[in-house]
């Protein structure tokens, strides 16, 4: 009899045997077992041809089937007992297994029905609970025992810290950024400073020359230019209102 079997569709040797019996439209009995023994062995051979490892359970059942077949071929087996032989163990196992298969299908149906039905996900609950906990927390006074001036002081410190950090970050940035060549000359800077002097006849603070410059190289060059101008007396330095404020004025030579 022709049959095509997919190997993975069997849960085990009993599954295969039940399949063969049903395929041949037989009832589960010793006689049916004898009838399908050859097909069972053929299947095992196929597995071998396909280089599939045959599980020991399949082989054990093959042995059982062959034994069953030979037993009935032996003369005198029936006579000794007088009356029909009891059904072999295997028949009972097959009956039971077939029933298990049936309820397995029932469970599968139940599962299938339940698959399309959705319940609330526990994520919802976690969300609601966390919101509730947040509210609980809000009910506590987070500023208990702290005075306003302490808060203000903390705020100011934070601002100072932030500024310092900003500065730090800025200087750090510079280290990475500036890789330009010598684009500043002292002569150039001297011209710039003299320009400044003309525009501000009453003078301008010393810092103004340098403070707004970002490139350290430019700062140095500007400072050197300033020194050069002082040396050549083209500008003069006045002490301003406070010690650390020097005023630069264009000098008359």
């Amino acid at each position: 009899m022709e049959y095509n079997l997919r190997l993975d569709s069997f849960e085990g040797p009993l599954d295969l045997l039940v399949h063969l019996i049903e395929k041949n439209q037989l009832d589960i009995s010793e006689i049916s077992l004898r009838k399908v023994t050859q097909q069972y062995l053929d299947y095992l051979n196929r597995m071998e041809e396909m280089d599939l490892e045959i599980a020991s359970e399949f082989l054990m059942l093959a042995a059982e089937l062959v034994q069953l077949k030979t037993k009935t071929l032996l003369p005198g087996a029936k006579k000794k007992r007088g009356g029909p032989l009891p059904e072999p163990d295997l028949v009972k196992r097959l009956f039971f297994y077939r029933r298990v298969k049936r309820v397995t299908e029932l469970l599968k149906d139940l599962e299938e029905k339940r698959m399309g039905v959705y319940e609330r996900n526990s994520d919802h609950l976690i969300y609601f609970l966390s919101r509730y906990e947040d509210q609980e927390k809000q009910r506590e006074n987070p500023l208990e025992g702290i005075q306003l001036k302490q808060v203000v002081a903390a705020f100011n410190r934070a601002q100072i810290d932030a500024k310092a950090r900003k500065k730090r970050d800025k200087s750090r940035e510079k280290k990475w950024q500036e890789l330009e060549g010598e684009s500043y000359t002292i002569a150039e800077k001297m011209e710039e400073i003299l320009d400044f002097c003309q525009r501000c006849p009453r003078g301008f603070p010393f810092g103004k020359v340098i403070n707004n410059l970002e490139n350290p190289q430019e700062k140095v060059v500007s400072f050197l230019a300033l020194l050069e101008l002082i040396k050549s007396k083209r500008i003069k330095i006045d002490k301003g209102t406070s010690v650390n404020k020097l005023i630069i004025k264009g000098g008359k030579v």
Partner: peptide, 15 residues
């Protein structure tokens, strides 16, 4: 879904 092999075992246990 539960696999066929597991489902059969599960059915045996359930019943």
């Amino acid at each position: 879904r539960i696999t066929q092999a597991s489902l059969e075992t599960l059915a045996i246990i359930a019943y």
